[in-house]
């Protein structure tokens, strides 16, 4: 697996300091959001623990010895939440967040597409099968975070396209998809 290719701005020292100029900061934050989303998509990361993430290469450029500050990252995540690209987890704490490089609705669509493609309509699939099963290998939602998956399935349930079947274990929870077609 090749490494994530950071943009050249990643090597620009001021990029790691929250800019006092509002316009500059908006651009800077937007660039950071794009990098975070791309990075997470690349490595299929669904959840970021902020303090841990700050030590990873995403927010710490060892070659120029610059590291993003926690407050700056929090402000960036806040902006992402406003745009519906992230969510605090747990919601009352600002220590970690879901990164929606695909929004739950988009996940829902891709899952239902996958279901119909594989002829799984009207049959029961467990969450484990969706996230880690052989059938889902190669899809974007392979190794998806369970919480994110549940959110995506919730969308489908609300639409009336699926029904969740409770089980003792969350992974054994089943989903029945009603084919749209």
């Amino acid at each position: 697996m090749s490494a994530f290719d950071f943009p050249s701005i990643y090597n620009f020292p001021p990029f790691f300091t929250q800019q006092p100029n509002e316009a500059t900061w908006q651009t800077q934050a937007q660039l950071w959001i794009s990098i975070i989303l791309s990075y997470c998509r690349f490595y299929k990361i669904h959840r970021l623990d902020l303090s841990d993430a700050l030590t990873t290469e995403l927010f710490y450029n060892k070659s120029i010895n610059r590291r993003l500050k926690l407050e700056t990252l929090q402000s960036i995540i806040k902006m992402m939440i406003k745009q519906g690209l992230a969510e605090w987890d747990p919601p009352n704490k600002k220590t970690s967040a879901f990164i929606y490089w695909k929004k739950p609705e988009e996940w829902a669509t891709s899952i239902s597409n996958w279901v119909s493609e594989n002829g799984l309509n009207n049959s029961i699939v467990t969450l484990y099968e969706i996230a880690h099963g052989e059938a889902s290998e190669g899809t974007e939602f392979h190794e998806i975070d369970q919480a994110v998956l549940l959110k995506a399935l919730d969308v489908l349930v609300k639409k009336g396209e699926a029904q969740t079947l409770q089980a003792t274990n969350a992974e054994e929870m089943g989903v029945k998809f009603f084919g749209t077609g």
């Binding site: 701005i9 620009f12 020292p13 990029f15």
Partner: peptide, 26 residues
């Protein structure tokens, strides 16, 4: 404040760079 330069804050102090962030396209 005019957005022409940007700052780089480190423990060593503040350095000023030309603002390439504002017009950066990725």
């Amino acid at each position: 404040s005019k957005g022409l330069i940007c700052i780089d804050e480190t423990v060593e102090g503040v350095r000023f760079y030309e603002n390439i962030i504002i017009n950066y396209q990725w």
